[in-house]
Write a protein that binds this DNA or RNA. Sequence first.
DNA 1: TATAAAGTTGCTATATTTAGAAACTTTCTC
DNA 2: GAGAAAGTTTCTAAATATAGCAACTTTATA
Lengths: 108, 108
Amino acid sequence: MATKEMRRTTLSEMKDRYIGQVGTPDRDSYEYELKMEVLGKMIKSARKERNMTQEQLGKLIGVQKSQISKLESSANSATIDTIMKVFKALKADINFHVKLEDDFVKLA
Amino acid sequence: MATKEMRRTTLSEMKDRYIGQVGTPDRDSYEYELKMEVLGKMIKSARKERNMTQEQLGKLIGVQKSQISKLESSANSATIDTIMKVFKALKADINFHVKLEDDFVKLA
DNA sequence: TATAAAGTTGCTATATTTAGAAACTTTCTC
DNA sequence: GAGAAAGTTTCTAAATATAGCAACTTTATA
């Protein structure tokens, strides 16, 4: 615990783990909804890493445990504001990666 | 234009460009607010890459140009829902990277 | 410099998120 | 299995985001 290295979790990893590998039926469709689900799972997973309960995390931010529960289960489309508050409390650095796909499809 | 490779923009790059290098006065404070600002700038930058006007992008999503303007200027804390709609319309893949920092500070 | 195009800002209304409180369910631990 | 701890759900109120519209400002372009 004390000597663990920088932990890094990417959305891709989470997708692979929870949704399925790329190419699998349920991957590319539902992408939109699933991303929110994954975000909730990331909060949960980060909280677990910190060995915190929902109540403890809530107290750090100033909300009740039920709020945390809702966020983790993606009950709604969270605000950037909220997401950042949470990850900040978890001493996690969250950032957004945007990948602009090429206009032209490559032929295999 | 036709042969351009996969374009990739990270939050870190944007921070360096718009806010300043790490270590600079204004980088680590205001972090919270600035991330939202950067997100807006990323939308704008992605839209420009696509050579779109705010009106065109708005039409793709089904909102008016004033909405896009507000998003790009980070008038408010956008919803994940909204952000994904925008980037989807821009044919951009957005994902979240979460980095859990180590509990122990490394000594230089 | 006119004119058009693109982008911004204020105002309003509606929809949705945030949040607390309390009851409830699940999970752990003895 | 009983009790406690952790997590979930429902209901309600409040704050905030979304959105349209129209007027306005800025930027391009003829």
